[in-house]
């Protein structure tokens, strides 16, 4: 698990102000850079660097695939510790597994399945159950409550 990294003021500004609203126009970096008080080339270089250092996991559009027929489902496994590495390899090998976290609970592996069709979820679950011999507990969302992106950077201040 990576720890908070040292971030300079420009980097903090990018993280705090560019979690959404990236412009849709011919020269979007130039427009975004002007808003942040920096040069286009500097913004591009900074984003590249933040991606390389793992401060950012991604930069681009975030899709809500449910709106175009796709599906996202949270699911959990109760993995015996002795079998952890084998099960992890089976689960992570599936491209449908978008995120996977280890959590402290009897249900110790929690992952998100993202597929192009609802049927793809059932296929992925069947594949994981066949490959691991474990039962997948699926937690499809029944309702999403309003949340907005609001985590401001706070770690690794200079000085």
């Amino acid at each position: 698990m990576s720890d908070a990294m040292a971030l300079d003021p420009l980097e903090r500004s990018i993280i705090d102000h560019l979690q959404g609203g990236f412009p849709v126009c011919s020269h979007p970096y130039a427009v975004a850079a002007a808003r942040l008080g920096m040069q286009e080339s500097e913004l591009i270089a900074r984003i590249k660097n933040l991606l390389q250092r793992g401060v950012l996991t991604r930069f681009g559009p975030l899709f809500q695939v449910e709106r175009v027929g796709g599906a996202f489902v949270l699911a959990a496994l109760e993995v015996p510790e002795a079998d952890w590495e084998r099960v992890l390899a089976v689960v992570n090998a599936l491209p449908q597994v978008a995120h996977n976290y280890r959590r402290e609970h009897r249900f110790n592996m929690w992952f998100v399945l993202a597929t192009e069709t609802p049927a793809g979820i059932a296929e992925a679950i069947a594949c994981i159950e066949a490959g691991t011999g474990l039962r997948v507990h699926a937690f499809p969302k029944e309702k999403e409550y309003f949340v907005e992106m609001k985590l401001a950077s706070r770690g690794g201040r200079y000085g």
């Binding site: 698990m1 990576s2 720890d3 908070a4 990294m5 971030l7 990018i14 993280i15 560019l18 979690q19 959404g20 609203g21 990236f22 849709v24 984003i47 933040l50 250092r53 793992g54 401060v55 950012l56 996991t57 991604r58 930069f59 681009g60 559009p61 975030l62 899709f63 809500q64 695939v65 709106r67 175009v68 992106m149 985590l151 950077s153 706070r154 770690g155 690794g156």
Partner: peptide, 16 residues
């Protein structure tokens, strides 16, 4: 269909 366009920070790296 696109929720937003922007950076996706690693929560751990930004202090959470």
């Amino acid at each position: 269909v696109i929720r937003r366009i922007g950076v996706v920070p690693n929560h751990y790296a930004i202090g959470y």
